[in-house]
Design a protein around this nucleic acid. Structure first.
Length: 253
DNA sequence: ATGCCTAACCCCGTTAGA
């Protein structure tokens, strides 16, 4: 089973890319982030024509997450912060596995209210993951975490120092999340590889110079980690005309 | 130097992204 996560940066603008990529790769389940639109504007019929089930948590203009799945989806929840106005979370069950799709807050600028929102949001997420772990529920979580875990996940650690994605509190959150007992799928397969990124800025020739960061991740509970066969980042769609600034990460279990 | 790009919304310049 191939499961992928892709911050599409507007499903309206990226519809053709997403459908072509699904056709090319025969991905079974796709987590999408940054739909930038409400459910009514999601191109449902294009996915349904390809026999995908859909669960959409949309919002006007900003955020928005969705799951397309070849298998039926049972929705458990669509919010992690009670009363959150931002559509960033989906907790579902597919094929007997709990699957969580997240678009974690960016948090910049760090002297604005956006930064405490990021920390609080991600802490709530950690409580939830910890609760699933304690109940021994096999699960995986994928998405745009907006955290650069280590220096090797960043083209220029010095340039990113202090950014909301690359500072002590964010590293603490990442470490706490992993210390629940979860496994970074990418690092299970590629433990030491550097220069492997999932995001490249549109500006300043970041993509052609491979000046990227790794911020899109899958974390696996031990039961799912045992079943991991592969994890890779597919850079192909980042090179397409009018690309998203993110590219998909894929796990096979 | 929060900048050199992209997308949404519509006050077609401002906000947000990372």
């Amino acid at each position: 089973m191939k499961i992928a996560s892709w911050n599409v940066n507007s499903i309206k603008a990226r519809k053709d890319h997403v459908l072509k990529w699904l056709d090319d790769t025969q991905t079974d389940i796709l987590f999408m982030q940054e739909l930038k639109g409400v459910e009514d504007n999601f191109p449902k019929s294009d996915f349904e024509d390809r026999e995908y089930h859909l669960t959409i948590n949309g919002q006007k203009t900003y955020n928005g997450v969705a799951i397309a799945s070849k298998y039926p989806i049972t929705v458990i929840s669509d919010e992690i912060l009670e009363g959150d106005e931002q559509a960033r979370f989906l907790d579902v069950e597919i094929n007997g596995i709990r699957m969580i799709n997240v678009y974690c807050p960016n948090g910049n600028p760090v002297d604005s209210e956006k930064y405490p929102y990021k920390l609080n949001w991600t802490k709530k997420l950690i409580y939830h993951l910890n609760s699933l772990f304690q109940k021994q529920i096999p699960f995986l979580i994928g998405g745009d975490f907006n955290i650069i875990p280590m220096d090797i996940d960043c083209h220029d650690p010095q340039a990113w120092k202090g950014d909301a994605l690359f500072r002590q509190e964010s590293w603490d959150l990442w470490r706490t999340m992993k210390n629940i007992g979860l496994y970074d799928a990418y690092r299970m397969i590629h433990p030491y590889e550097a220069d492997c990124y999932s995001f490249w800025d549109y500006q300043a020739g970041a993509w052609p110079q491979n000046k990227g960061i790794r911020i899109d991740h899958f974390l696996l509970s031990p039961e799912i980690a045992d079943r991991l066969q592969d994890c890779h980042i597919d850079r192909t769609p980042r090179g397409w005309e009018k690309a998203s600034d993110h590219t998909p990460i894929i796990i096979e279990i």
